[in-house]
Amino acid sequence: MSSPTPVALSVRDATAADAAACAALYAPYVRGTTISFEEEAPDAAEVARRIARAQERHAWIVAEEPGAGDSGGDGPRVVAYAYAGPFSGRAAYRWSCEVSVYAELGRRRSGVGRLLYGELFARLGRRGYRSLFAGVAEPNAASAGLHAAMGFERVGTYRRVGFKHGAWRDVTWWQRALGEDGPAGEPPAEPR
Rank of each mutant, 00 (worst) to 15 (best):
A59Q: 08
D18W: 00
A52S: 12
P6R: 01
G73H: 09
R31W: 09
A16C: 11
S110Q: 01
A68S: 06
R57Q: 15
D70H: 05
Y102K: 01
L120S: 05
W174Y: 11
L120I: 06
W168I: 08
V47A: 05
V101E: 05
A141H: 11
Y81H: 05
N140P: 08
C22F: 04
Y83E: 13
E65L: 07
R49F: 02
Y102S: 00
C22Q: 11
G75I: 10
R31C: 08
R159C: 03
A14V: 01
R90L: 05
P183M: 03
E46I: 10
P188V: 06
V47Y: 07
V155C: 03
R50T: 00
L116I: 08
S110D: 02
A19K: 02
E190T: 13
A45K: 13
A41I: 06
A142L: 00
G75K: 11
A44W: 13
S96W: 00
A84R: 15
D181F: 04
A141G: 10
A137T: 15
P191K: 08
G185S: 12
P183F: 07
A27W: 12
G111T: 07
A134N: 04
G111S: 05
L124T: 04
A91R: 10
A59F: 09
G151V: 09
V136R: 07
